[in-house]
Computed example of a mutant assay.
Amino acid sequence: MEPLSIVVLLVMGTIAGAINAAVGSGSLLTLPVLMAIGIPPGVAVRTNTVGMFFSTLGSCVGYRREIVAEKQHMPRLLATATVGATVGAILLLVSPASALDVVVPVLIVLALLLVVFQKRITRALRTRKGRGGAPSADDAPSGAAPTESAGKPESAENPESATGAIDASSERSPLQSKGLLGSLGAASVYGGYFTAAQGVLYLGILGVFTGRTMGSVNGIKNLMSLGVNLAAAVVYVVAFFLIDAEIVWIGSAAIAAGSLLGGFFGAHLAKRMPEWMLRGVIVVVALAALIRQFV
């Protein structure tokens, strides 16, 4: 690989890592570069997945406090992501590359619709289930202060903490619902298969099923992306040694170095972005991904 190509991958990996931490879909920057320098699509996906694993590692470090606040729900969510990603990675190894042209646009459109119409879909789901409950973070007044009872910690009164985490004692937690787990499992199959835009899918699904803001579920999204990328990377590395499934290691290393740095600093940037801006970035990235598929 030419030195200039390595430098370009390093720079694009840094930017992609920051985008992954905030939204997801950073691979839509690195994958085209890998293919532009002559790497076949299947090899490019494997090379990119191994490298972009480090972006999710960096973003999880940046979101470590938010992730710890959700630790009661993480084992189930991570198990779902790992199983789905493993299935998706194996599918990539055995399926024709042309299948990507059909699957990717459909799922990106679905993710875009989930993000744009999240509030309406959430209200419709709640109405259908006949569930009341407290208003979501989107509906809360911007200047509202949390209520406390004398002698009791805030967590005892509210099932949802200031970070948006839902108390594990709540049996009605949407993070434990079968619908959410099933949807995230399907998104994880896609994530293991292609990786790009999986974060947009996760944010759309989590927002719809929980009714929470994009920012408050970003830590969950980043940890699930870490599980997906790790599972897929392990499958590809094993396939490299067992069946000679090619990986361009120097390309993976360049992306890894840049994306680790970008993921860490991108996480801090994402936590300072207002909800409307984060949602707008998701829409722009998803539309760019669609255009990229058809150009």
Rank of each mutant, 00 (worst) to 15 (best):
I6H: 07
Y193A: 01
L10G: 11
G263V: 07
V109I: 15
G280T: 10
V217H: 03
I282G: 05
G132L: 12
P153A: 13
I243F: 12
A16D: 03
G219K: 05
L223C: 05
N229S: 10
V285Q: 09
A85V: 06
V94A: 10
M277A: 14
I205R: 03
V248G: 02
A150F: 14
V23H: 01
L110I: 13
N158M: 11
M1A: 11
G219T: 05
I121R: 03
A16G: 11
S27F: 00
A257C: 14
S142M: 10
L242Y: 08
F240H: 13
D244R: 14
A134P: 05
A288C: 13
D167A: 15
A44E: 11
L287A: 08
P146D: 13
A197H: 09
L9P: 06
A16K: 00
G143S: 06
Q293K: 13
T47W: 00
G132P: 03
G13Y: 05
P3L: 14
V109Q: 06
Y63G: 01
A137L: 12
S55F: 07
P96I: 05
G38A: 07
V43C: 07
T122Q: 12
S173G: 09
A21L: 02
N218A: 10
G84K: 00
L34W: 03
M35Q: 11
D244C: 07
A165G: 11
L31I: 09
G133E: 08
E246F: 03
A270I: 06
L10P: 06
S59M: 06
L31R: 04
A196R: 07
